[in-house]
Design a protein around this nucleic acid. Structure first.
Lengths: 148, 148
DNA sequence: TAAAAAATGATATAATTTATCTTCACGGTT
DNA sequence: AACCGTGAAGATAAATTATATCATTTTTTA
């Protein structure tokens, strides 16, 4: 799916939800979509400032907040960075990421078993899960082979 | 296991490894051990400053770094806080946490299935995992019942 | 159109973490 | 015991990440 399609899809989803996909939010969405790896908020801010020189930290954080709430982007807690969601139309799925510590590439996975394993442990303790952070760090296939 | 035993155990482990469990590191270890929930670095710093008024941020971060490397404490990436490890003698186990967003209680779980699920997804992509961050947020049994 | 709600602008600041350089303490070696 | 190399801690500063607050503008709704 190319970026224009993603934007169109996001607009559609927002319309359905009564959420406002404003020009600013679209800009941030597009900037992030152009990366195929994780990006820090301040890096994104620098990019945004090329278009909109008045942008400030709060500008980018607010936009990211919104996009995150809509499920379009994920925050990677372990590296303070943001990444596009691979399947943003289906909302509210558990987020599970493989993060390459070498090249920064992020792969979003979907393991039902993983989700079940967490939930069954939680159930055993009477714990009610609202949100999961699953971030595996290591080296992607490409970076491993590059080392040979 | 009470705190003195934990300290003794930590000393033993460090000795075996040729790592230095200095007075400062012991103080930070003990402070953290007194909590049964996650604590922020600056909260810990405040507590340390009662004993050692010259302590600075770097002081606490260095000690936490060491304790983390030894596997005695875990950093909770999603809330920027630290917690004692439940089983610090067995090193290098994957860290899996249930974090109560109400009372701050942290339960460390050990699910082989969870670990396997992540690894099997990684294998499928040729991804080599070095470190996992698994942090489930929600409400513990106690906080749920308190709401009734 | 007026009022309410939401988004953005602008400014400041808080919170978290790391870098750097110096000094000190410990362990092994001559 | 004095010497020396290494790692730890002290001191200072600064980088990085994130939020608070209040004014202004835009959009929605009554």
């Amino acid at each position: 799916m190319d970026i224009e399609q993603q934007v169109a899809q996001a607009k559609l989803v927002c319309e359905k939800r009564g959420a406002r996909f404003t020009a600013l939010r679209e800009q941030v969405f597009t900037l992030l979509a152009k990366h195929n790896s994780a990006v820090g908020a301040y890096d994104l801010l620098s990019e945004l400032q090329v278009i909109d020189s008045s942008a400030k930290p709060a500008t980018i954080y607010r936009a990211l907040d919104f996009l995150n709430q809509q499920g379009f982007v994920h925050k990677i807690e372990s590296i303070n960075a943001f990444v596009m969601c691979d399947h943003f139309s289906e909302c509210n799925h558990p987020v599970q990421l493989l993060i390459c510590d070498d090249c920064g590439y992020v792969e979003e996975i979907q393991s039902e078993n993983l989700d079940l394993a967490i939930r069954s442990m939680a159930d055993a303790s009477g714990f009610k899960i609202k949100h999961q952070v699953v971030e595996a760090h290591g080296y992607c296939a490409k970076c491993q082979s590059d080392k040979n």
